[in-house]
Design a protein around this nucleic acid. Sequence first.
DNA 1: AGACAGGGGAGTG
DNA 2: CACTCCCCTGTC
Length: 277
Amino acid sequence: MPNIEVNDFDLAHTLECGQLFRAERREGWYYVACRDHLFKVRQQNNMLEYDGVDEEFLVRFFALDLDLEAIYRKINVDPHIDAAIRQCRGLRICRQDPWECLVSFICSSANTITNIRKVVKLLSERFGQKAKLDDYETHTFPKPGTLNDVESLREAKAGFRAESIAVANNLVTDEYLHALPSAGYEAARERLMQISGVADKTADCVLLFSMDFLSAFPIDTWVKQVIAKEYFHGQNVSLHKMREFAMIYFGQYAGYAQEYLYHKARMDAGRGKGSRK
DNA sequence: AGACAGGGGAGTG
DNA sequence: CACTCCCCTGTC
């Protein structure tokens, strides 16, 4: 079984912090599906054992090329974020497939993680192809162009997000999405937000989790609570102000700060795996 | 069984 | 700009 030595990496935090919806624990392994890739992985101390993809893919996917300590030095600017870093140490932001990421986070709007996982699974079963590793069976994620039937999307429990998925499906291609980052953060964000069903939070998730914009700071209800409490004396501030503040306050790796604050809040509330987003 | 959580959009003040 | 209602599904 191939393996690789890793530093500053925590597989469980990375896979269970809510950034991914197609990772599943099975008999001591995590099986991870990403677009048309399927691999398994487990960690023992500094050793990562894996199968199904090559080392190059793994390093890129888990962003093992990044110096996490350097990122901590940049974002660790107060006691609260320091506590989050101590609690979530080793959590890395993965580099997802942009299309799968876009559709997944369209599904995340007003939805719980459990439900998002279910919808993404149903979409894959219905529109993707079978994939198998060992005894683990799953499906590839459907390609752009295949998600245009609103009725079927509703049958996959997408609910009112079905129309938005179809809109995205008809508006973008893989080439379009892969070219987006070169336009820069603001322009890429504006383009994503042209898709009905994609506003600030969803756009920033896609930019952060699939386009390497590590300064993007998606604000969901959990992060909103934390920012209000820790940085605005509990007063209610507009999401726009919060985002503006956070991107300056935490700087070029604000997205990492966001993910640590988010994961800490959820762990403190006893929701390490699963329920609400 | 009825309230509520969860982003985004549309409409209104 | 801010506020309110609705979209759908699931849980409590």
